[in-house]
Amino acid sequence: MIRYGIQDYQPQWLRGRDNITGAHARRLASLIGLTLQHLWLVWDLDDDEWFTDAPVLLDFGATQVEIDHQKFDDLSITWNTINPKRAIEDSCFHLAWRPDPLPNLVDLPGRTLRHVELLEWIGGDHDMADGSLAIGFDLAPAWLTVFNAMDENGLEHQPPGPRYRPYRIDS
Rank of each mutant, 00 (worst) to 15 (best):
I32W: 03
I32V: 15
G33K: 06
L34Y: 06
L34I: 10
T35K: 15
H38G: 02
W40L: 02
W43K: 05
D44C: 10
D46N: 15
D47V: 08
D47E: 14
E49S: 06
E49T: 09
T52S: 13
A54S: 07
A54N: 00
A54C: 10
L57A: 02
L58G: 05
D59C: 11
F60W: 08
G61F: 04
T63W: 06
Q64R: 15
I67V: 13
I67P: 03
D68G: 03
D68H: 15
H69L: 10
Q70C: 13
F72D: 05
D73N: 13
D73R: 14
D74S: 11
L75A: 03
L75Q: 06
L75F: 08
S76E: 10
S76A: 13
I77W: 08
I77A: 05
I77N: 11
T78R: 13
N80E: 14
N80H: 14
T81C: 09
I82Y: 00
P84T: 01
K85V: 01
I88P: 07
I88T: 04
D90G: 03
C92S: 11
F93C: 12
F93H: 10
F93N: 04
H94P: 01
A96I: 08
A96M: 14
W97K: 07
R98V: 11
D100I: 11
D100Y: 11
P101C: 02
L102V: 07
L102W: 02
L102E: 12
P103C: 00
P103G: 00
P103H: 03
N104V: 10
L105I: 09
L105K: 02
V106I: 09
V106C: 01
V106D: 04
V106W: 10
D107I: 06
L108I: 05
R111G: 01
T112H: 12
T112W: 12
T112P: 14
L113A: 02
H115Q: 15
H115M: 08
V116P: 02
E117V: 01
